[in-house]
């Protein structure tokens, strides 16, 4: 092997045979759940992560599902990106998820990377946290003490940090189905498979007459631009009760851009990212409205 190659540090490995087994193993010192590994293994190679124990949960097929249950879409944490992308039911109710999945990493990575892994990685440039934040999803976390549900907007507490504690496992994401609503996600990236320069997702619930629809509720998720909890809260608040029209959407985009805190890096300078936050927010809102009205 070449000198200078990236090698994870020494680690132990156990395969979880049941959810209970996984939770027991995860309660041990410095244990990490291993699903697709497409975030964790690169972090281990860079020695940014050096767990003592990897708990392989790939055998827990009960955590891999997408199903409509009452007024919620339930997505198991072990669901692969490719399965969410290919899901007809997810696409019908939440096109934002299909839009996002189409531009997450690349087809081969999507075969193995998981929904739960993406959320738990909490990368500040990840698409799914923004999409699920826009949808006001909740996540289900299991531990030895039982089950708790957490709004996804409270799930990410900082870059690479979530509320999942030792001995706990994210098992599921639940997305509320809203009548007369739709959604969209748009991303600008430098090349296929790259992280976004910026990306925005929008969810709109419309009311009022079809000829002059009004925004009853809006969800706006932003990623890669330093939006707190991946949310453009001020823009959402602004839109409530306003006409679902171009003027409102452009204004909401400007507000979203004003309240995010992008950082210049190799993907672009701050002012460009802020410009993208405004433009992508407005476009995502426009597309979500068109879909909700059956025009797209």
């Amino acid at each position: 092997m070449m000198p200078g190659m990236q090698v994870p540090s020494h680690v132990e490995y156990e395969r979880a045979t049941s959810l209970e087994h996984a939770l027991t193993l995860l309660a041990g010192p410095d244990a990490r759940a291993l699903a697709g590994g497409h975030s964790l293994i690169p972090m281990m190679k860079l020695r940014l992560a050096a767990p003592e124990l990897l708990v392989d949960i790939n055998g827990l097929t009960e955590l891999s599902f997408i199903r409509l249950d009452g007024d919620e879409l339930r997505i198991g944490a072990l669901t692969r990106h490719a399965d969410l992308l290919g899901s007809a039911v997810a696409g019908e109710y939440f096109p934002i998820l299909t839009d996002a999945e189409r531009v997450i990493a690349d087809p081969v990575v999507r075969n193995w990377g998981t929904i739960g892994g993406s959320l738990c990685q909490a990368d500040p440039s990840e698409d799914l946290p923004a999409a699920f934040a826009a949808l006001r999803a909740t996540v289900v976390i299991r531990g030895a003490g039982g089950v708790r549900t957490v709004p996804v907007r409270e799930f990410h507490v900082g870059p690479y940090e979530t509320v999942v504690g030792p001995g706990e496992l994210l098992t599921e994401v639940r997305v509320p189905v809203l009548p007369r609503s739709s959604s969209a996600h748009l991303k600008v990236h430098r090349r296929a498979g790259d992280w976004p320069v910026a990306a925005a997702g929008a969810v709109l619930r419309l009311g009022g007459p079809a000829a002059a629809p009004v925004v009853e509720a809006a969800g706006i998720g932003l990623t890669a631009v330093g939006a707190p909890h991946f949310v453009a809260a001020e823009a959402e608040e602004f839109l409530r009760g306003r006409p679902a029209d171009e003027e409102s959407f452009a204004a909401a985009g400007a507000i979203a851009a004003d309240h995010c805190r992008p950082v210049a890096d190799q993907r672009g300078p701050e002012d460009y990212k802020r410009h993208l936050a405004a433009e992508l927010t407005a476009r995502a809102l426009r597309q979500a409205a068109a879909r909700a009205l059956g025009e797209a």
């Binding site: 490995y13 291993l34 590994g37 497409h38 293994i41 690169p42 990897l54 392989d56 790939n58 087809p107 081969v108 990575v109 075969n111 193995w112």
Partner: peptide, 15 residues
């Protein structure tokens, strides 16, 4: 891996 393309630099042999 089990019939699905994966990038084997990001999969552990034990998996």
């Amino acid at each position: 891996l089990d019939g699905t393309p994966v990038k084997s630099c990001t999969v552990l042999a034990v998996m």
